[in-house]
């Protein structure tokens, strides 16, 4: 326990290789899921894939911080002083995302204009390149004039 840090744990080069492979595999799996999701239309299916991608993202973050940034081999004191404050993110994410979600639901219920705005279909522009693309948010404006 106390003979920490200064001692190398196993072969560091082997550890670097292992973590590189893990990170690459996780990234490839993420990309496969991303490609797969293009064809998935059901809301639940998309949500499940997105959840998996988020878990893989957190796994990647763990491997980068723990091994590349060497935090796993530091003293527990140092680990705690970094990781414990970051736990605030759990609350931030929960609170803010549910607040955003609630705001959308409230607006959809009580703001008919907001609801109507988000049901008007607009034309997708043909070929984004060229002069017409430089005009600012043309579809949004078209929808607004339609309302009036």
């Amino acid at each position: 326990m106390s003979n920490h840090d200064t001692h190398e744990h196993g072969d560091p080069i082997a550890e670097i290789k292992k973590v590189t492979i893990i990170l690459s595999v996780l990234t490839i799996v993420e990309l496969i899921l991303g490609f797969w999701m293009i064809g998935v239309t059901s809301e639940g299916g998309r949500l499940a894939i997105k959840g998996t991608i988020v878990i893989l993202m957190l796994a990647k973050a763990f491997y980068i911080v723990a091994y590349f940034m060497h935090l796993k081999h530091e003293l527990k004191n140092l680990i705690m002083t970094i990781v414990v404050p970051l736990a605030l993110f759990i609350w931030f994410i929960t609170a803010f995302l549910s607040d955003g979600n609630s705001f959308r639901n409230l607006r959809n219920t009580y703001d008919p204009h907001f609801k109507a705005q988000s049901t008007i279909k607009v034309e997708a522009k043909e070929g984004h390149h060229g002069e017409e693309g430089t005009k600012e948010a043309a579809p949004a404006k078209a929808a607004e004039t339609e309302k009036k």
Binding site: Q117, I120, K121, V122, A124, K125, T134, A137, P139, A143
Partner: peptide, 13 residues
């Protein structure tokens, strides 16, 4: 400036 429309075909912000 946002030239891209929403995935569901509605106007984006």
């Amino acid at each position: 400036m946002n030239p891209f429309i929403n995935a569901d075909g509605t106007a984006s912000s």
